[in-house]
Design a protein around this nucleic acid. Structure first.
Length: 829
RNA sequence: GCGAGGGUGGCGGAACUGGUAGACGCACUAGACUUAGGAUCUAGCGGGUAACCGUGGGGGUUCGAGUCCCCCCUCUCGCACCA
C-alpha cells in the first residue's frame, strides 16, 4: 500500500518531462500547428490564484491538443517593465532590475511547481535589451512613416510622484499610489497614430465573431466609437473666421438656432475680445476647464453656458445664431463645436429652455405634427423634413446626404467620419521602461537614433529617486550624446515607452525568441501565427487586446508580419473570488497558491480551479471544495493501488475479445462514453468542469464493480482499460498523478507523449433502453425495451404499463407519439 | 439611457438538435469499520404525509418547455452629455 505522496511524485515527473524535453517545440513544421497562449504575467513577486487558473486552463488546452496530434506551441514569458518595480525599488532600497529578475526567478519556479507544459527555451522578458531593441526598431519605422509623432497634449500629472499617469492609474481623480490629486498638464508626448487604423480595427472585428466573446467585440466597437456624419462650416458675423462643427444630423441643419463651443475651443478668446464681457466668460471657461474630468463628464451635471456676445450664420437659413460656450461640449471629440438644434436634440433642448433660446421644428413624425412651443422633450427620431426649404417633404434620412452635398458644392460641408478612439500616448516619464530612441539636437531638432545604434540601452547604473522621479534626465552618461545627424552635442529622449507597447507584440516574438538578427522570421510567422487560442482576463478587453491588434496591422504594413489579426480565438476567464470579492492583498482575502500546493499538491490545485466553475465564470474559492478535489485524486490513487497486481498495460479503450456479461459490457460502455464526453466537453468551449464530472462518474463506477469484475475472465483487462482511459483523459488536468499511476500500471512511455484515445461507437450501443411514458404530458411510467424494438412494440408495452393504464383508463386515446429510444407520449381525452 | 451576459436545491454548478430537471462536487443526515477519527466505505439528500407542486414573475406555441415566442421583474459587467 503506497501513499499518495504528491510531493515526491510531482517533483519526479517535472524532472522527467524536463529531462526528456517532452514540451520542447517541434520545429519541423510537419504537423498541423496549434498555438495556445496565456497572457504573460507581470513579475510582481508571487503568482496568485488568478494566474493559477489562467495557466491551468491554458495547460489543459496545450496538453489536450498535443495528445490530439497537433504540433503545439506553448511559450511563457514576462511582462517585465513597469511602475511597480520602481515603487518596490524605492521601498526596499534596491534596483528595479534586481527586483524584477529575482521575481522572475521565483515565479518561474512557482510555475514549474505547477507542472505546466511550457517550452521554457523560448522564455522572454521584455525588460531585456535583446527584446526591446526590436521595439525601438519598430518605433523608428513608425516614426519614419509618421505613425509615431510628437505633440503637446493634456495629460494626468501627479505632482507628488513627479510623473504622468495613464488614465487607468487615476482613480476617481487621485493618484493610485499616493492619493494626491491628479492635475491636467500640457506636455509634449509621443503618440502612435492608432486612429489611422480605426476603420480596419473596427471592420476586422467581424473576422473574430465566433472566436471572441461577443461582449469583448462590443466593448471594442464601443471604444472605437465610429460615427458617420459631416463637418459643416458656419461663418461668424463680423469676423473673417469660420466655426466648423461635426454632426451626425445634417438633416436638422435648418433647425440649428445657436452654437455651442467647448470652453477650450481655440476661437473662444478671439470671439470674446472686444465684447466687454471678457472677464465673465474667461472666469466661466477657467472654472469649467479646471473641473475634474470625471465630474465634468458626469451625465447629471447641470448644463450651463455663457453667451459670447457673437453670432454665426446658419448657412441655409441665414439665421443669426448666438454663440455660447457650454460646459457639456468636449474639445476632445469632433471639432469641439456643436450646432445646436433644440427641437431635435435633448441636450440642446434643455440648454435652450434654460437660456430662453428659440427652437424650430424641422422634422415631423410621420403620423403627427410637432409644435415647438408644446414640446416637452426633443424629437430625435427620423421623420419628414419640414421648414427646410427645398428639402421639405423628403425623408429625413435621405436628406442627410442631400444637405451635405448641397453644402459641399458651396465648399461649406463634407461628409466625414468621427471616432471616439484617440491616438495612443506612449510616453512615460518613468525609468523602468524601454527608452524611446530619439535625440533632441538644437540644430537638427528631433533626430532618430540610427537603427545600427540600437538598442538604446536603459542604463542600469542609476538609483531610483525616493520621490519617484525618473533618474534618467539627470543621468549624464545617458542623456548627453552627439547628434547622429550633425555630430554636435545633443540630448537623448528620457521618456520611456508605455509597457503596453511591449505586450503588443510579444506573442509574435516567441516564434523566433532566440533570433538575434530580426524580431521574427517569415517562415516562423507564416507557420505559427496567429495564436489559435488566447486566454486571459476580461480586464484586458480593450487596452491590451486593442493595442495588439493595432500592432499586428502596423507591423504587417511594415512587412514584418503576414496576418491581420493576432488572436483567432479568445477565452476570457473569470476572476477568482474569496467571500464574493476579488482576492487582493489590501483586502486581506488572498489564498496563496504556494500554501495550497504545499498542502494538497499541484494536481489538486489545478483540478479544483478547473472543476469549480466553467472557465468564463467567476470562481468562488472554497476550502471544502479543494478538499473534494483532493479526495477524488486520492480515490483514484487507492483504486489503482488496490488493483495494481491485476492491472496490465493494455492501453485505453482496449479490445476485449470474448463476449461480455452485462456488468463488463456496462463498464466498457461507460469507459467509451466517458472518453466521448470528455472530448466533447473540451472541444465545446473548454467545459472542463463537466469533463471532470464525467471522469468522476467513471471512477465511481469502477469502485462499484471492481470487486465483482476481478474474478471474471475479462475483468482485469476491462478494469485496466477503463483505468487507462481515466488516466489518459485526466492527464491534461492532473498530469503528475496520472503519470505515476500510468507507470505503475506497467506503461514505459511517459503519458505526456501518449495520443488521445479513440472510443468505439459500437461500444456505446446497448441492448435495452429505458423509455419514459407520458400521459397528457405528465410522466406516468418507465419501460425497458430492446434497442431495436419497433414503434408498435414500444407503444404496446407502454400502454400495458400498470401506472400508464391507470391514467388512461376510461378515456379515449386521441394520439400517441413514439420517439424510439426516448419516450412515448399518449394524449387522452 | 445604450450594449453584452445571467436568474435552476442549503451552496458551486449539470441538462446534446424541445423529450425522465437537479449529473458531478460541497455541505448535511443515518449506518458500517474503528480506542478514536476532520480518514474510509454504504445509503439518503428540491418541496409536500399524500394527490401533487417545482428552473425569477405572467402569458403563449406544443402531445411535451429550464430550453422556442411575447410582456414584466431582477442581478452582474462594460460604455455613457460623443453632438
Amino acid at each position: 500500500m503506497a501513499q499518495y505522496d504528491f510531493k515526491t511524485i510531482e517533483e519526479k515527473w517535472q524532472k522527467t518531462w524536463a529531462d526528456q524535453a517532452c514540451f520542447r517545440t517541434d520545429v519541423s513544421r510537419k504537423k498541423r500547428k496549434y498555438y495556445v497562449l496565456e497572457m504573460f504575467p507581470y513579475p510582481s513577486g508571487r503568482i496568485h490564484m488568478g494566474h493559477v487558473r489562467n495557466y491551468s486552463i491554458g495547460d489543459v488546452v496545450a496538453r489536450y491538443k498535443r495528445m490530439q496530434g497537433f504540433n503545439v506551441f506553448h511559450p511563457m514569458g514576462w511582462d517585465a517593465f513597469g511602475l511597480p518595480a520602481e515603487n518596490a525599488a524605492i521601498k526596499n532600497s534596491t534596483h528595479p532590475a534586481k527586483w524584477t529578475y529575482e521575481n522572475i526567478d521565483y515565479m518561474r519556479t512557482q510555475l514549474m511547481r505547477l507542472g505546466y507544459s511550457y517550452d521554457w527555451e523560448r522564455e522572454i522578458a521584455t525588460c531585456h535589451p535583446e527584446y526591446y531593441r526590436f521595439e525601438q526598431e519598430f518605433f523608428l519605422k513608425f516614426l519614419k512613416k509618421g505613425l509615431a509623432y510628437r505633440k503637446k497634449a493634456p495629460v494626468n500629472w501627479c505632482p507628488s510622484c513627479h510623473t504622468v499617469l495613464a488614465n487607468e492609474q487615476v482613480e476617481e481623480g487621485l493618484c493610485w499610489r499616493c492619493d494626491s490629486e491628479v492635475q491636467q498638464k500640457e506636455l509634449s508626448q509621443w503618440f502612435l497614430r492608432i486612429t489611422d487604423y480605426a476603420e480596419e480595427l473596427l471592420a476586422d472585428l467581424d473576422q473574430l465573431v465566433g472566436g471572441w466573446p461577443e461582449r469583448v467585440l462590443t466593448m471594442q466597437r464601443n471604444w472605437i466609437g465610429k460615427s458617420v456624419g459631416a463637418e459643416l462650416a458656419f461663418s461668424i458675423k463680423g469676423m473673417d473666421e469660420q466655426i466648423t462643427v461635426f454632426t451626425t444630423r445634417p438633416d436638422t441643419l435648418y433647425g440649428a438656432t445657436f452654437m455651442s463651443l467647448a470652453p477650450e475651443h481655440p476661437l473662444v478668446e478671439k470671439l470674446i475680445s472686444g465684447t466687454g464681457q471678457e472677464n465673465d466668460i474667461r472666469a466661466f471657461v477657467e472654472r469649467i476647464s479646471k473641473m475634474d474630468r470625471i465630474v465634468r463628464t458626469a451625465e447629471d451635471l447641470e448644463k450651463e453656458g455663457v453667451f459670447t456676445g457673437r453670432y454665426c450664420i446658419n448657412p441655409v437659413t441665414g439665421r443669426e445664431m448666438p454663440i455660447y460656450v457650454a460646459n457639456f461640449v468636449l474639445m476632445g471629440y469632433g471639432t469641439g463645436a456643436v450646432m445646436a438644434v433644440p427641437a431635435h436634440d435633448q441636450r440642446d433642448f434643455e440648454f435652450a429652455a434654460k437660456y430662453g433660446l428659440s427652437k424650430v421644428v424641422v422634422i415631423s413624425p410621420r403620423d403627427a405634427t410637432l409644435e415647438a412651443d408644446s414640446m416637452v422633450e426633443a424629437y430625435t427620431q427620423p421623420g419628414v423634413m419640414t421648414n427646410s426649404g427645398e428639402f421639405d417633404g423628403m425623408d429625413s434620412e435621405a436628406a442627410k446626404d442631400a444637405i451635405v452635398s448641397m453644402l459641399g458644392a458651396k465648399g461649406l460641408g463634407r461628409p466625414t467620419v468621427n471616432y471616439r478612439l484617440r491616438d495612443w500616448n506612449i510616453s512615460r516619464q518613468r525609468y523602468w521602461g524601454a527608452p524611446i530612441p530619439v535625440v533632441y539636437c538644437d540644430a537638427c531638432g528631433i533626430v532618430a537614433v540610427p537603427e545600427t545604434d540600437l538598442p538604446v540601452e536603459l542604463p542600469l547604473d542609476v538609483q531610483v529617486n525616493p520621490d519617484g522621479r525618473s533618474p534618467l534626465p539627470s543621468c549624464a552618461s545617458f542623456v548627453t550624446v552627439s547628434c547622429p545627424a550633425c555630430g554636435k552635442p545633443s540630448r537623448r529622449e528620457t521618456d520611456t515607452m508605455d509597457t503596453f507597447v511591449e505586450s503588443s507584440w510579444y506573442f509574435a516574438r516567441y516564434t523566433a525568441a532566440r533570433n538575434e538578427d530580426s524580431p521574427f522570421t517569415a517562415e516562423d510567422i507564416a507557420y505559427w501565427m496567429p495564436v489559435d487560442q488566447y486566454i486571459g482576463g476580461i480586464e484586458h478587453a480593450i487596452l491590451h487586446l486593442l493595442y495588439s491588434r493595432f500592432f499586428v496591422k502596423a507591423l504587417r504594413d511594415e512587412g514584418y508580419l503576414s496576418h491581420d489579426e493576432p488572436f483567432q480565438n479568445l477565452l476570457t476567464q473569470g476572476m477568482v473570488l474569496l467571500h464574493g470579492s476579488k482576492m487582493s492583498k489590501s483586502k486581506g482575502n488572498v489564498v496563496d497558491p504556494d500554501e495550497m500546493i504545499e498542502q494538497y499538491g499541484a494536481d489538486t490545485v489545478r483540478l479544483f480551479c478547473l472543476f469549480a466553475a466553467p472557465p468564463e465564470k467567476d470562481l468562488e474559492w472554497n476550502d471544502k471544495g479543494i478538499e473534494g478535489a483532493n479526495r477524488f485524486l486520492s480515490r483514484l490513487w487507492r483504486l489503482v493501488d488496490e488493483l495494481e497486481g491485476a492491472l496490465t498495460a493494455c492501453g485505453p479503450c482496449a479490445r476485449v475479445a470474448s463476449l461480455l456479461d452485462p456488468i463488463g459490457r456496462d463498464l466498457r460502455r461507460k469507459e467509451h462514453d466517458t472518453v466521448r464526453r470528455v472530448e466533447r466537453d473540451i472541444e465545446n468551449k473548454f467545459q472542463f468542469n463537466t469533463a471532470i464530472a464525467a471522469m468522476m462518474e467513471l471512477v465511481n463506477t469502477l469502485y462499484a464493480v471492481k470487486d465483482e469484475l476481478r474474478g471474471h475472465p475479462d475483468g482485469p483487462l476491462l478494469l485496466s482499460s477503463a483505468i487507462s482511459s481515466v488516466l489518459v483523459t485526466l492527464s491534461p488536468i492532473a498530469p503528475h498523478i496520472c503519470e505515476e499511476l500510468w507507470a505503475r500500471m506497467g506503461y514505459t512511455r511517459p503519458l505526456a507523449l501518449e495520443p488521445w484515445p479513440s472510443y468505439d461507437p459500437e461500444a456505446l450501443k446497448t441492448n435495452e433502453v429505458t423509455v419514459v411514458v407520458q400521459v397528457n404530458g405528465k410522466l406516468r411510467g418507465q419501460i425497458t425495451v430492446p434497442t431495436d424494438a419497433s414503434s408498435a412494440e414500444i407503444e404496446a408495452q407502454a400502454l400495458a404499463d400498470q401506472n400508464v393504464a391507470r391514467h388512461i383508463e376510461g378515456k379515449t386515446i386521441v394520439k400517441t407519439i413514439v420517439i424510439p429510444g426516448k419516450l412515448v407520449s399518449v394524449v387522452v381525452r
